[in-house]
Every structure is written in C-alpha cells, then in structure tokens.
C-alpha cells in the first residue's frame, strides 16, 4: 500500500496526465464507498466522487514536482471529499436521502425494518453517530485508511480520531443490541 502510493505519486510528479487515470482507477471505488456511507445517496455520492477527483487533478496541475512526490495521497484526497460532503450537508435537500443499495420491490418497509443486518440498517445506525464519529468509522473500516490518514483528512488530532472510531463502534454495537431487545 505504502510502496504503491509512492510509485503513484512518483508517476504523477513525472507525468500527471499519463498517471492520473491510474489514480482514478485505484481510488474511485473506495472514495465512492466511503462517500456513499456518509451521504447515503447514490447520485450525490457519484457526483462527490467525480468532483473530488476533478478537483484533485486541478490542484495537482498547480503543484511543484516535489510537492506531488511527497504528497500523502489518500489523506489529501479525503480532505477534498469530506469538504464536499460537508458542503452538501450544508445545502441539504429537504428530500429523504436514504436510498437502499438494492432496489427490491418485493420488500416493503416492514421487511426492511426487520432485516437488521442489511446495508440500509447499518446506514441508519451510522446516521445516528455524531458527524466526526461517523466519518472516522467509515474512513477507518469501510475505506481502510490509517488513523494518521484520517487525521490528515479531517484535520483532527490522531488521538481524537482514535477516540472517534472507538466511540463510534461502541455506539453502533449498542444500537444493534438495543434493536435485538425490541
């Protein structure tokens, strides 16, 4: 992972236009997955993923070679992505944003509510965390970033990020167990 990132930043520094498609291919799925869990809306998640990568390209265009070489790519990309997620939340649509991952017309809302292990149920629980906790949990466990990268992306100290992840997981567990009692 680390060596792959170094190879990519080296290639980006050398020839941005030639290497940028590799950045898109290697990052788009994880960006989309993380953003989707945060904004819970497919089209918006796709838009934010695209916009993140386009802004990254424009920024890289203006960077000096050695700045690109030493760039910590994932923390940096997620700084852009989290900003876009925040902007979207600020201009929040009044419409319900929760779109289930799989459209299954055979399953009504009742079946959905009973299916405690489905993606939609986990999205509901994630939505009950505080913003920093949700972001930290998603970046750590869905996207697979390190605490250091999450700290870079969110601008919060590493120790705080660790606490966010632990409290977030704890809360998810309690929510899950509380539902079992009903």
């Amino acid at each position: 992972m680390e060596t792959a990132q170094l190879a990519l930043t080296g290639a980006l520094a050398e020839d941005l236009d030639a290497a940028f498609p590799d950045l898109v291919r290697s990052r788009q799925d994880r960006l989309y997955s993380g953003v989707l869990r945060i904004v819970r809306h497919h089209a918006d998640a796709a838009d934010i993923t695209q916009e993140t990568l386009i802004r990254a390209y424009r920024a890289l265009r203006g960077y000096e070679t050695n700045r690109i070489q030493t760039l910590r790519l994932d923390g940096w990309l997620w700084t852009i992505a989290l900003n876009l997620c925040r902007n979207r939340a600020r201009n929040a649509h009044p419409l319900p944003s929760n779109v289930p991952d799989t459209q299954d017309p055979g399953r009504g809302p009742e079946a959905e509510a009973i299916d405690r292990t489905g993606t939609a149920a986990w999205d509901e629980r994630l939505a009950k965390l505080t913003g920093p906790q949700r972001n930290a949990v998603v970046l750590r466990h869905v996207v697979g970033l390190s605490y250091r990268e999450i700290s870079e992306a969110s601008g919060r100290p590493t120790g705080t990020v660790k606490a966010d992840v632990h409290r977030g997981l704890d809360r998810l567990k309690k929510l899950f167990e509380a539902e079992a009692m009903r």
């Binding site: 898109v24 799925d29 390209y57 466990h141």
Partner: peptide, 29 residues
C-alpha cells in the same frame, strides 16, 4: 466489535461506471 468491523468492511460498493468517464472529461484528459 470484531463482527461490526467485518460488516463495515463489507459495506463497499463499486463506483458507477460513468464516474471514470466523467472524471476524464471533467479534467480535460
């Protein structure tokens, strides 16, 4: 917590195929 972490790891989803082309067009590549 172990299982919750595993569940979270499974909540990934491939980006729609349109994303790649839109990025390439949006950047002018």
């Amino acid at each position: 917590n172990e299982t919750i972490e595993t569940v979270l790891q499974g909540l990934t989803k491939k980006a729609p195929t349109s994303v790649y082309g839109n990025v390439m067009v949006g950047t002018g590549l």
